[in-house]
Computed example of a mutant assay.
Amino acid sequence: MPEALVLDADAVLWSAERSAVGGRHLLLLLHGYGADEHDLYPLRQYLPDAFVVASLAAPLAPPWPAPGRSWYPIDGFEGADASHVTRAAQAVIAWIDAHAAGAASVGLLGFSQGGAVSLQAMRLEPQRFAYAVNLSGYATPGELPGDAELAERRPPVFWGRGTNDDVIPGFVVAHTTQWLPEHADLSGRVYPGLTHSVSEQELGDVAAFLDKRLTALDTVD
C-alpha cells in the first residue's frame, strides 16, 4: 500500500490566525498543477469576508523542470490511476482533522487538479463538506463508496470552465457534465473564450455562489 501523503502545515497561508477557525466557516483553496499555495491566495479579495481562508500546498513536487507543486502525477489522463487523486483527497481530509476540526463548516475551492481533488474529497466524506467550487477541473472517473450518499445529499457545487480550455480532455469534461448533476446541486457556467484560467466574470459568479452558501449555512445555524 502506498505511503499516505502529508500536507505541509507550515506552508498553509491563512487569512486569519489559525486559532480563529474555531466556530467559523472555513474555505480551503487547492491550487493547480505546477503552482503552489500562493497561487490562489490573492483570490480571497473577491470572496466574502466571513470566511476564514486557508490556501493549502500540494504534497508532491512535479518532475523537473516543472515548477511548483502537484496533487498527483499527470502521466496522461487515459492511463491515470484514480487512486492518486484519492490519496491527495485523503491528505486534505487528514489536514482538516489535524488543523481545522473546530470549523463551523468546511468548503472547498480548487483549480484544475485542485478542483478534481476537491470533488474527490467530497466523495470520500460527503457529510464533511458543505459545498465545492471546481474551476477548470473535473470529476475523476470511477466509483467511490461515498458516491451514493453524495447523490442523496446533493451538496451545492459550482463548476466553471472555458470554451477554449485545451488542457482538460474532452472525454473527462463529458464525464463530469454527466456525473455532477447526478451527485450534486450543480451551478455550472461555460465562459466563451476562456482558456485554462480564471476570469473576472467567473470570480463574480463564484462570489455570488459563496454568498448564497453563507446565507444557507447561517440559516441552518
Rank of each mutant, 00 (worst) to 15 (best):
H25Q: 13
L26W: 11
L26G: 05
L28D: 08
L28Q: 07
L29F: 13
L30D: 01
L30R: 00
H31I: 03
H31K: 06
G32K: 10
Y33T: 02
Y33G: 04
D36T: 01
H38Q: 15
Y41V: 01
P42E: 01
P42I: 00
L43I: 09
L43R: 02
R44L: 09
R44N: 03
R44M: 07
R44H: 06
R44I: 06
Q45C: 09
Q45N: 10
L47D: 05
A50F: 05
A50R: 13
V53Y: 12
V53T: 14
A54G: 13
S55E: 07
L56Y: 01
L56N: 08
L56S: 09
A57E: 04
A58N: 03
A58C: 01
P59W: 03
A61L: 11
A61E: 08
P62I: 00
P62E: 03
P63R: 09
W64S: 15
P67W: 07
P67F: 03
P67R: 10
G68W: 04
G68Y: 04
G68M: 05
R69P: 01
S70K: 05
S70V: 04
S70Q: 13
W71Y: 08
W71C: 00
Y72R: 03
P73R: 14
P73E: 07
D75C: 12
G76R: 08
F77H: 11
F77P: 07
G79C: 12
G79R: 14
A80M: 14
D81I: 07
D81F: 08
A82Q: 10
A82R: 13
S83N: 14
S83I: 15
V85A: 15
V85C: 09
A89T: 01
I93S: 04
I93D: 13
I93H: 07
A94H: 14
I96A: 12
D97T: 11
A98Y: 07
A98L: 04
A98S: 13
H99G: 12
H99R: 11
H99L: 09
H99C: 13
A100W: 02
A100N: 07
A100E: 14
A101E: 11
G102Y: 02
G102A: 15
G102P: 02
G102D: 15
A104R: 08
S105M: 03
V106D: 00
G107Q: 06
L109H: 07
L109M: 14
G110R: 04
G110Y: 01
G110A: 05
F111G: 07
Q113C: 05
G114Y: 02
G115N: 12
Q120W: 09
M122I: 13
R123N: 12
L124E: 14
E125L: 12
E125Y: 11
E125Q: 15
P126E: 11
P126W: 14
F129I: 14
F129K: 10
F129L: 15
A130H: 14
A130W: 11
Y131A: 13
Y131Q: 11
A132F: 06
N134Q: 11
G137P: 02
G137V: 00
Y138M: 10
Y138P: 01
Y138C: 03
